[in-house]
Amino acid sequence: MIQLDRVTKQFPDGTVAVDELSLELPTGEVLALLGTSGSGKTTTLRMINRLIEPTRGTISIDGRDVRSLDVHELRRGIGYVIQQAGLFPHRTVIDNVTTVPRLLGWDRRRSRSRAMELLELFGLDDSMSDRYPAQLSGGQQQRVGVARALAADPPVLLMDEPFGAVDPIVRAQLQVEFARLQRELGKTVVFVTHDVDEAITVGTQIAVLRTGGVLAQIGTPKDVLAHPTDLFVADFMGADRQVKLLGLLPASAVNQRRLADLPSDWEVVLDGAGRPTGWCRRGAPVTTEVITPVRPGATARAVLEAALASESGAAIHVDDHGVATGVSTLDDLSLASIEAAA
Protein backbone atom coordinates (compact mmCIF):
# COMPACT_ATOMS: atom_id res chain seq x y z
CA MET A 1 0.00 0.00 0.00
CA ILE A 2 1.23 3.48 -0.87
CA GLN A 3 0.10 6.33 1.33
CA LEU A 4 0.57 10.03 0.84
CA ASP A 5 -0.26 12.09 3.88
CA ARG A 6 -0.70 15.83 3.35
CA VAL A 7 2.27 15.96 1.01
CA THR A 8 3.34 19.41 -0.14
CA LYS A 9 6.13 20.36 -2.50
CA GLN A 10 7.19 23.95 -2.81
CA PHE A 11 10.11 24.62 -5.14
CA PRO A 12 12.83 27.13 -4.19
CA ASP A 13 11.31 29.68 -6.59
CA GLY A 14 8.13 29.63 -4.55
CA THR A 15 5.94 27.59 -6.91
CA VAL A 16 3.76 25.13 -5.11
CA ALA A 17 3.71 22.03 -7.30
CA VAL A 18 1.82 19.75 -4.94
CA ASP A 19 -0.46 21.05 -2.22
CA GLU A 20 -1.53 19.04 0.83
CA LEU A 21 -2.06 15.91 -1.21
CA SER A 22 -3.35 12.87 0.63
CA LEU A 23 -4.21 9.60 -0.99
CA GLU A 24 -4.07 5.89 -0.41
CA LEU A 25 -3.40 3.19 -2.95
CA PRO A 26 -4.07 -0.39 -1.87
CA THR A 27 -1.63 -3.10 -2.93
CA GLY A 28 -2.22 -4.44 -6.42
CA GLU A 29 -4.08 -1.37 -7.65
CA VAL A 30 -3.10 0.89 -10.51
CA LEU A 31 -3.47 4.58 -9.74
CA ALA A 32 -3.62 6.85 -12.75
CA LEU A 33 -2.50 10.35 -11.79
CA LEU A 34 -4.37 12.48 -14.28
CA GLY A 35 -3.89 16.17 -14.89
CA THR A 36 -2.68 18.86 -17.24
CA SER A 37 0.89 20.09 -17.20
CA GLY A 38 1.50 22.05 -14.03
CA SER A 39 -0.80 19.84 -12.00
CA GLY A 40 2.12 18.33 -10.12
CA LYS A 41 1.48 14.76 -11.22
CA THR A 42 5.09 14.06 -12.19
CA THR A 43 6.33 15.80 -9.04
CA THR A 44 4.03 13.57 -7.00
CA LEU A 45 5.41 10.47 -8.69
CA ARG A 46 9.00 11.54 -8.25
CA MET A 47 8.47 12.17 -4.57
CA ILE A 48 7.57 8.52 -4.09
CA ASN A 49 11.05 7.32 -5.09
CA ARG A 50 12.58 10.48 -3.68
CA LEU A 51 13.91 11.90 -6.90
CA ILE A 52 12.23 14.94 -5.38
CA GLU A 53 11.97 15.39 -1.61
CA PRO A 54 8.66 16.71 -0.30
CA THR A 55 8.63 19.97 1.60
CA ARG A 56 6.05 18.70 4.09
CA GLY A 57 4.04 15.56 4.70
CA THR A 58 4.96 11.91 4.62
CA ILE A 59 4.93 9.21 1.99
CA SER A 60 4.98 5.61 3.05
CA ILE A 61 5.05 2.27 1.29
CA ASP A 62 3.58 -0.63 3.24
CA GLY A 63 3.63 1.48 6.36
CA ARG A 64 7.32 2.46 6.11
CA ASP A 65 8.18 6.11 5.65
CA VAL A 66 10.23 6.31 2.45
CA ARG A 67 12.60 8.69 4.18
CA SER A 68 13.53 6.02 6.70
CA LEU A 69 15.14 3.96 3.95
CA ASP A 70 18.45 4.44 2.14
CA VAL A 71 17.50 6.37 -0.97
CA HIS A 72 19.32 4.04 -3.38
CA GLU A 73 17.96 0.90 -1.73
CA LEU A 74 14.51 2.44 -1.92
CA ARG A 75 14.80 3.13 -5.65
CA ARG A 76 16.19 -0.31 -6.41
CA GLY A 77 13.06 -1.72 -4.80
CA ILE A 78 10.76 0.37 -6.97
CA GLY A 79 10.38 -0.07 -10.72
CA TYR A 80 10.70 3.21 -12.64
CA VAL A 81 9.59 3.81 -16.22
CA ILE A 82 9.70 7.16 -18.00
CA GLN A 83 8.71 8.68 -21.28
CA GLN A 84 11.08 7.70 -24.11
CA ALA A 85 12.18 4.89 -21.81
CA GLY A 86 15.45 6.55 -20.76
CA LEU A 87 17.38 3.47 -21.78
CA PHE A 88 21.14 3.56 -21.43
CA PRO A 89 22.30 4.09 -25.01
CA HIS A 90 25.71 2.52 -24.44
CA ARG A 91 24.32 -0.76 -23.15
CA THR A 92 22.62 -3.56 -24.98
CA VAL A 93 19.00 -4.43 -24.32
CA ILE A 94 19.93 -7.29 -22.03
CA ASP A 95 22.41 -5.16 -20.09
CA ASN A 96 19.77 -2.49 -19.68
CA VAL A 97 17.29 -4.98 -18.29
CA THR A 98 19.81 -6.53 -15.88
CA THR A 99 20.76 -3.14 -14.42
CA VAL A 100 18.85 -3.38 -11.15
CA PRO A 101 19.44 -7.09 -10.50
CA ARG A 102 23.17 -6.46 -10.91
CA LEU A 103 22.96 -3.47 -8.56
CA LEU A 104 21.25 -5.73 -6.08
CA GLY A 105 24.12 -8.18 -6.37
CA TRP A 106 22.42 -10.98 -8.28
CA ASP A 107 24.92 -13.11 -10.15
CA ARG A 108 25.26 -12.75 -13.88
CA ARG A 109 23.47 -15.92 -14.84
CA ARG A 110 20.46 -15.35 -12.67
CA SER A 111 20.15 -11.75 -13.88
CA ARG A 112 20.37 -12.81 -17.50
CA SER A 113 17.87 -15.59 -17.25
CA ARG A 114 15.44 -13.29 -15.46
CA ALA A 115 15.95 -10.67 -18.17
CA MET A 116 15.37 -13.18 -20.97
CA GLU A 117 12.20 -14.30 -19.25
CA LEU A 118 10.94 -10.71 -19.14
CA LEU A 119 11.88 -9.97 -22.73
CA GLU A 120 9.91 -13.00 -23.79
CA LEU A 121 6.98 -11.85 -21.70
CA PHE A 122 7.06 -8.54 -23.60
CA GLY A 123 7.22 -10.23 -26.96
CA LEU A 124 10.83 -9.29 -27.67
CA ASP A 125 12.61 -12.27 -29.16
CA ASP A 126 16.14 -13.45 -28.40
CA SER A 127 17.70 -11.62 -31.31
CA MET A 128 16.76 -8.30 -29.69
CA SER A 129 18.74 -8.91 -26.54
CA ASP A 130 22.11 -7.94 -27.99
CA ARG A 131 20.88 -4.87 -29.81
CA TYR A 132 21.42 -1.35 -28.66
CA PRO A 133 18.49 0.96 -27.84
CA ALA A 134 19.09 3.07 -30.94
CA GLN A 135 18.40 -0.01 -33.05
CA LEU A 136 14.90 -0.48 -31.63
CA SER A 137 11.58 1.11 -32.55
CA GLY A 138 9.91 3.42 -30.06
CA GLY A 139 7.46 0.74 -29.00
CA GLN A 140 10.24 -1.80 -28.49
CA GLN A 141 12.21 0.72 -26.44
CA GLN A 142 9.21 1.26 -24.18
CA ARG A 143 8.81 -2.50 -23.71
CA VAL A 144 12.46 -2.76 -22.74
CA GLY A 145 11.93 0.17 -20.38
CA VAL A 146 9.10 -1.65 -18.62
CA ALA A 147 11.08 -4.90 -18.60
CA ARG A 148 14.00 -3.09 -16.98
CA ALA A 149 11.69 -1.71 -14.30
CA LEU A 150 10.30 -5.17 -13.55
CA ALA A 151 13.62 -7.01 -13.63
CA ALA A 152 14.14 -7.27 -9.90
CA ASP A 153 10.43 -8.00 -9.41
CA PRO A 154 9.72 -4.89 -7.35
CA PRO A 155 6.29 -4.76 -5.68
CA VAL A 156 5.83 -1.12 -6.69
CA LEU A 157 6.07 0.39 -10.15
CA LEU A 158 6.21 4.10 -10.99
CA MET A 159 5.42 5.04 -14.57
CA ASP A 160 5.74 8.60 -15.86
CA GLU A 161 3.85 8.91 -19.15
CA PRO A 162 5.56 5.71 -20.22
CA PHE A 163 3.76 5.46 -23.54
CA GLY A 164 3.73 9.18 -24.30
CA ALA A 165 6.43 9.13 -26.95
CA VAL A 166 5.03 6.47 -29.28
CA ASP A 167 2.39 6.75 -31.97
CA PRO A 168 -1.29 6.26 -31.05
CA ILE A 169 -1.59 2.75 -32.49
CA VAL A 170 1.46 1.43 -30.67
CA ARG A 171 0.35 3.31 -27.58
CA ALA A 172 -3.01 1.58 -27.59
CA GLN A 173 -1.27 -1.79 -28.01
CA LEU A 174 1.08 -1.09 -25.14
CA GLN A 175 -1.78 0.02 -22.89
CA VAL A 176 -3.75 -3.15 -23.51
CA GLU A 177 -0.62 -5.27 -23.14
CA PHE A 178 0.25 -3.54 -19.89
CA ALA A 179 -3.27 -3.94 -18.50
CA ARG A 180 -3.12 -7.66 -19.32
CA LEU A 181 0.31 -8.12 -17.72
CA GLN A 182 -0.75 -6.19 -14.67
CA ARG A 183 -3.61 -8.59 -14.09
CA GLU A 184 -1.02 -11.39 -13.87
CA LEU A 185 1.65 -9.48 -11.96
CA GLY A 186 -0.52 -7.62 -9.46
CA LYS A 187 1.98 -4.80 -8.88
CA THR A 188 1.08 -1.63 -7.08
CA VAL A 189 1.41 0.94 -9.81
CA VAL A 190 1.37 4.74 -9.96
CA PHE A 191 0.90 5.84 -13.54
CA VAL A 192 1.18 9.48 -14.61
CA THR A 193 -0.71 10.54 -17.70
CA HIS A 194 -2.55 13.47 -19.23
CA ASP A 195 -4.61 11.21 -21.47
CA VAL A 196 -8.08 10.42 -20.09
CA ASP A 197 -8.51 7.31 -22.24
CA GLU A 198 -5.16 5.97 -21.11
CA ALA A 199 -6.08 6.58 -17.48
CA ILE A 200 -9.33 4.70 -17.99
CA THR A 201 -7.62 1.80 -19.76
CA VAL A 202 -4.81 1.18 -17.30
CA GLY A 203 -6.11 2.61 -14.03
CA THR A 204 -8.12 0.83 -11.39
CA GLN A 205 -8.14 4.17 -9.57
CA ILE A 206 -7.97 7.63 -11.06
CA ALA A 207 -6.80 10.72 -9.20
CA VAL A 208 -7.54 13.96 -11.02
CA LEU A 209 -5.21 16.78 -10.06
CA ARG A 210 -5.82 20.43 -10.77
CA THR A 211 -3.19 23.12 -11.33
CA GLY A 212 -1.02 23.59 -8.28
CA GLY A 213 -1.20 19.95 -7.31
CA VAL A 214 -4.57 19.97 -5.57
CA LEU A 215 -6.51 16.73 -5.59
CA ALA A 216 -9.81 17.31 -7.38
CA GLN A 217 -11.18 13.79 -7.18
CA ILE A 218 -10.09 10.23 -6.62
CA GLY A 219 -12.08 7.12 -7.37
CA THR A 220 -12.55 4.24 -9.75
CA PRO A 221 -12.74 5.19 -13.42
CA LYS A 222 -16.47 4.52 -13.32
CA ASP A 223 -16.99 6.77 -10.33
CA VAL A 224 -15.05 9.61 -11.80
CA LEU A 225 -16.78 9.32 -15.18
CA ALA A 226 -20.25 8.93 -13.75
CA HIS A 227 -20.03 11.37 -10.90
CA PRO A 228 -17.42 14.07 -11.41
CA THR A 229 -17.31 16.16 -8.23
CA ASP A 230 -17.22 19.46 -10.04
CA LEU A 231 -17.14 21.21 -13.36
CA PHE A 232 -13.33 20.98 -13.56
CA VAL A 233 -13.33 17.20 -13.36
CA ALA A 234 -16.34 16.97 -15.66
CA ASP A 235 -14.58 19.14 -18.25
CA PHE A 236 -11.37 17.22 -17.91
CA MET A 237 -13.03 13.85 -18.35
CA GLY A 238 -14.66 15.26 -21.46
CA ALA A 239 -18.13 15.89 -22.83
CA ASP A 240 -18.10 12.29 -24.04
CA ARG A 241 -17.52 10.93 -20.53
CA GLN A 242 -20.82 9.07 -20.66
CA VAL A 243 -19.62 7.28 -23.81
CA LYS A 244 -16.34 6.47 -22.08
CA LEU A 245 -18.25 5.14 -19.10
CA LEU A 246 -20.30 2.89 -21.36
CA GLY A 247 -17.02 1.48 -22.61
CA LEU A 248 -16.27 0.30 -19.08
CA LEU A 249 -19.66 -1.31 -18.45
CA PRO A 250 -20.87 -4.68 -19.72
CA ALA A 251 -23.78 -4.72 -22.16
CA SER A 252 -25.71 -6.56 -19.48
CA ALA A 253 -25.73 -3.39 -17.38
CA VAL A 254 -28.11 -1.82 -19.90
CA ASN A 255 -31.83 -2.30 -19.50
CA GLN A 256 -33.20 -4.85 -22.01
CA ARG A 257 -36.80 -4.73 -23.18
CA ARG A 258 -38.70 -7.60 -24.64
CA LEU A 259 -38.81 -7.51 -28.43
CA ALA A 260 -42.47 -6.70 -28.35
CA ASP A 261 -41.99 -3.75 -25.98
CA LEU A 262 -40.32 -1.36 -28.41
CA PRO A 263 -41.75 2.11 -27.76
CA SER A 264 -42.03 2.84 -31.49
CA ASP A 265 -43.69 1.33 -34.55
CA TRP A 266 -40.58 -0.62 -35.51
CA GLU A 267 -40.43 -4.38 -35.28
CA VAL A 268 -37.56 -6.85 -35.31
CA VAL A 269 -37.69 -9.29 -38.21
CA LEU A 270 -36.57 -12.78 -37.18
CA ASP A 271 -35.72 -15.84 -39.20
CA GLY A 272 -37.05 -19.28 -38.41
CA ALA A 273 -34.44 -19.87 -35.69
CA GLY A 274 -35.20 -16.60 -33.94
CA ARG A 275 -32.16 -14.76 -35.27
CA PRO A 276 -32.67 -11.08 -36.19
CA THR A 277 -32.41 -10.30 -39.90
CA GLY A 278 -33.73 -6.74 -40.08
CA TRP A 279 -36.30 -4.15 -39.15
CA CYS A 280 -39.68 -3.25 -40.52
CA ARG A 281 -42.38 -0.74 -39.69
CA ARG A 282 -45.44 -2.26 -38.16
CA GLY A 283 -47.81 -3.23 -40.93
CA ALA A 284 -45.35 -2.29 -43.69
CA PRO A 285 -43.45 -4.69 -45.94
CA VAL A 286 -40.31 -6.31 -44.52
CA THR A 287 -37.20 -4.27 -45.26
CA THR A 288 -34.18 -6.41 -44.66
CA GLU A 289 -31.08 -4.50 -43.79
CA VAL A 290 -27.67 -5.21 -42.44
CA ILE A 291 -27.78 -5.13 -38.66
CA THR A 292 -25.14 -5.34 -35.96
CA PRO A 293 -26.48 -7.27 -32.98
CA VAL A 294 -24.93 -6.96 -29.52
CA ARG A 295 -23.27 -10.24 -28.55
CA PRO A 296 -22.73 -11.51 -25.02
CA GLY A 297 -19.58 -10.10 -23.40
CA ALA A 298 -19.75 -6.86 -25.34
CA THR A 299 -19.54 -3.51 -23.56
CA ALA A 300 -22.41 -1.11 -23.06
CA ARG A 301 -20.69 1.04 -25.60
CA ALA A 302 -21.38 -1.63 -28.23
CA VAL A 303 -25.06 -1.23 -27.37
CA LEU A 304 -24.82 2.49 -28.03
CA GLU A 305 -23.05 1.93 -31.33
CA ALA A 306 -25.61 -0.65 -32.43
CA ALA A 307 -28.49 1.64 -31.51
CA LEU A 308 -26.98 4.58 -33.38
CA ALA A 309 -26.31 2.43 -36.43
CA SER A 310 -29.81 1.08 -36.62
CA GLU A 311 -32.67 2.75 -38.44
CA SER A 312 -34.99 2.17 -35.51
CA GLY A 313 -32.70 3.76 -32.94
CA ALA A 314 -32.58 0.53 -30.91
CA ALA A 315 -29.98 -2.18 -30.40
CA ILE A 316 -30.77 -5.89 -30.58
CA HIS A 317 -29.18 -8.22 -28.02
CA VAL A 318 -28.49 -11.80 -29.07
CA ASP A 319 -27.31 -14.88 -27.16
CA ASP A 320 -24.38 -17.13 -28.03
CA HIS A 321 -26.41 -18.77 -30.80
CA GLY A 322 -27.38 -15.46 -32.36
CA VAL A 323 -30.93 -15.69 -31.10
CA ALA A 324 -32.47 -12.31 -30.27
CA THR A 325 -33.04 -11.90 -26.55
CA GLY A 326 -34.16 -8.29 -26.26
CA VAL A 327 -33.75 -4.70 -27.37
CA SER A 328 -32.40 -1.51 -25.82
CA THR A 329 -33.20 2.03 -26.89
CA LEU A 330 -31.05 5.14 -26.52
CA ASP A 331 -33.13 6.02 -23.44
CA ASP A 332 -31.89 2.85 -21.78
CA LEU A 333 -28.30 4.06 -22.21
CA SER A 334 -28.70 7.19 -20.09
CA LEU A 335 -26.82 7.29 -16.82
CA ALA A 336 -30.03 7.34 -14.83
CA SER A 337 -31.42 4.22 -16.54
CA ILE A 338 -28.15 2.35 -16.10
CA GLU A 339 -27.96 3.17 -12.43
CA ALA A 340 -31.59 2.24 -12.01
CA ALA A 341 -30.87 -1.09 -13.71
CA ALA A 342 -27.87 -1.78 -11.46
Binding site: N49, L51, H72, E73, L74, R75, R76, G77, Y80, I82, A85, G86, L87, F88, T99, V100, L103, G145, R148, A149, L158
Partner: peptide, 8 residues
Protein backbone atom coordinates in the same frame (compact mmCIF):
# COMPACT_ATOMS: atom_id res chain seq x y z
CA UNK B 1 16.83 10.46 -14.69
CA UNK B 2 16.33 6.77 -15.36
CA UNK B 3 19.75 5.99 -13.92
CA UNK B 4 18.92 7.81 -10.70
CA UNK B 5 15.42 6.42 -10.67
CA UNK B 6 16.50 2.79 -10.78
CA UNK B 7 18.78 3.42 -7.83
CA UNK B 8 22.31 4.18 -9.05
Amino acid sequence: DAAEGVGL
